[in-house]
Design a protein around this nucleic acid. Structure first.
Lengths: 351, 351
DNA sequence: ATCACTTGTGGGAGCGCTCCCACAGTACCT
DNA sequence: AGGTACTGTGGGAGCGCTCCCACAAGTGAT
């Protein structure tokens, strides 16, 4: 009959019930001790903890998940092919931050790639099955259906880089506006008079904010904004190069360029070289991201650093709070949460 | 009372019971359909599938895990700090293979780093809680307690690179012996007469096998093995350099070197350069791993390629089979499984 | 007709927890 | 003295499945 409950069977793990018997208390009390409830007397707690140690008790996650309707796991969803994940330091920095925030938690992190259609299909199933308590969403494109799916399923989610000024999801972002201002103010303070801007893809909210920052910084410095000095790019190297060529043609007198990404700056650099302009003597150049490219460029590129690791940490903290709020312990705080982290200008030889 | 069971409640997911009611069958029958049991009539199956589709039923993983004592998840455990994981293409190749093998499965992959002591602690807890059905173990050091822990917990595991000739765990490895033979045979066929070998760390089983391959290949080519031509290295660049210096001193007449890794070869190359030997004119050089280093070396390095992605796939297939064997469906096959995959010599200018 | 299988099906029991109600005990007011 | 509150505790109910036994119905041999 009870061949399953026999103690000492290899692989037979002790249950709450057994711990309770051993400690001479009830099942509920053991559960309270395990979950750190304060409503347990010191003596009882000690007895239970001893029993737990003696038996080598480890809670059964599945049972807990079933009874409490939670999984104690969150997912980091990367809507990109794996390749990009490994090549771009952005993700590993992010992951480090997430890991740090999770390290003194019971929460488990799942890494989910959703680059291909097939993977997205799987992800949808996965989320529908509520196999995670919450989702961290990085690098989401404007038209991605994922965020809405998450809202629909009522799964707590935090997004890095809001999709618009009125993002409904809790979001964490670096201060694109402020970062752009830092870059431009730096150029102006170095005596540059004619500062151009190569933008990112303007359907990305962060790119728009950088344009805003560029405009305001110039205005406040007493310069007037010349629309001929703003040229759209697309975050790519080719885009940066073409934009630079266009700018040089329209305003050959420019003496500084703020590019919306380091890759864009690399493209701009090529165009400048070909036009015979020296960096920084003739034209100062500032990028964004402070990536490896910036450090290895010739000359090394001044760039705006985003605190990616901290962003990962902040996203995780917010998500954990949101997950906790859904637990049957009430006290919802549910304010709309948008966090913005400061950037830092890393000055190098290009400006 | 039953405020929980009410249909249409936001977030209220349909249960097996509800699907059964809808399809006009019993709970057991729905379960059979969901799990693809063959003992269901075609008509019933269709009815159940329709009900599943209408209700948007998704099985509750936690309930299934509790009842069936399985998790439908496996872990890829990387006993290294995250940094190495991202910088070395070995891991991303491996991950690709694992992902491919898993892609038409219900199994979920968990990526677990166990570089720091803290992370290892967490991992131990994790495994003790049986939160995965099986474990993929890559790049394990000889004295790692992890494999034994897994055996103790009776968790199916597959290891990449057996720890010895009589590895108890199921293992997948590339053919270190054969790869070494390929390298040496290649050098001999190119007319080299005095082929040296810089070994890897000899406490690594694979490194020993490479030495064996080196010896046998020379013997079979009619050369006799001169122990003075074998110098221990440690897979590192510095080790390769020192070994090369030692070899040059002992046998200045050598005209070829087979290094146990590309990194080792890079070290050897430095020593050769400094001794004024030209590659490949004076000394031919062959490495192992076919890493990025090999491609970018000056001159490009001939190297032995291991089918890492395939190894990942094979490991996963074996693990899945092993996991399936433990399910209450009997027919254990439990033979000892050691799989060895062929290597390939990639010829470049260094030989 | 009887027996012996096989096939398909229903539903009870049980997996190991959490939640929550009930209640004993103690403390502090009126 | 009686009330009211809070603290600590035990244990029933139930989470949504899987497993398996029981059994009805069909099939074919005896």
């Amino acid at each position: 009959m009870a061949s399953h409950g026999v103690r000492g069977r290899s692989g037979g793990r002790p249950t709450l019930e057994e711990v309770a018997a051993r400690a001479g208390v009830g099942r509920g009390t053991v559960s309270r001790v395990i979950n750190g409830s304060p409503r347990v007397s010191e003596a009882t707690r000690a007895a239970v903890e001893a029993a737990v140690a003696e038996l080598g008790y480890v809670p059964n996650t599945a049972a807990r998940a079933l009874a409490a309707n939670r999984t104690d796991a969150i997912a980091l969803v990367v809507p990109e092919p794996e390749t990009r994940f490994f090549t771009e330091p952005y993700f590993s920095d992010m992951l480090r931050g997430v890991g740090a925030a999770l390290s003194d938690t019971e929460m488990q992190l799942l890494l989910i790639f959703a680059g291909s259609d097939r993977e997205r299909q799987r992800l949808a199933q996965y989320l529908a099955a509520h196999r995670v308590d919450g989702v961290l969403l990085v690098s989401v494109h404007a038209d991605d259906p994922l965020p809405d799916m998450l809202s629909q399923l009522e799964i707590p989610a935090v997004i890095s880089g809001p999709r618009s000024a009125d993002e409904t999801l809790t979001s964490v972002d670096s201060d694109n506006y402020g970062g752009a201002r830092q870059a431009v103010e730096h150029l102006v303070s170095r005596g540059r008079r004619t500062v151009a801007h190569i933008t990112g893809r303007l359907d990305v909210y962060g790119a728009q904010r950088r344009v805003d920052g560029y405009r305001d910084a110039l205005r406040e410095a007493g310069h007037q904004v010349d629309e001929l000095l703003i040229e759209p790019g697309d975050f790519s190297e080719g885009g940066g190069r073409r934009a630079m060529e266009a700018l040089l043609e329209r305003r050959p007198d420019l003496d500084a360029v703020f590019a919306a990404s380091d890759v864009t700056a690399a493209g701009a650099r090529q165009a400048l070289r070909e036009a015979g302009r020296r960096i920084p003597d003739d034209v100062a150049l500032v990028g964004y991201d402070d990536s490896a490219i910036a450090r290895h460029m010739e000359p090394p590129l001044t760039s705006v650093r985003q605190p990616i690791e901290e962003m990962g940490r902040a996203m995780t903290d917010l998500l954990l709070r949101e997950v906790a709020d859904r637990r049957p312990s009430a006290t919802r705080e549910l304010e709309r949460r948008q966090m913005v982290l400061a950037t830092e200008l890393v000055e190098r030889a290009s400006s």
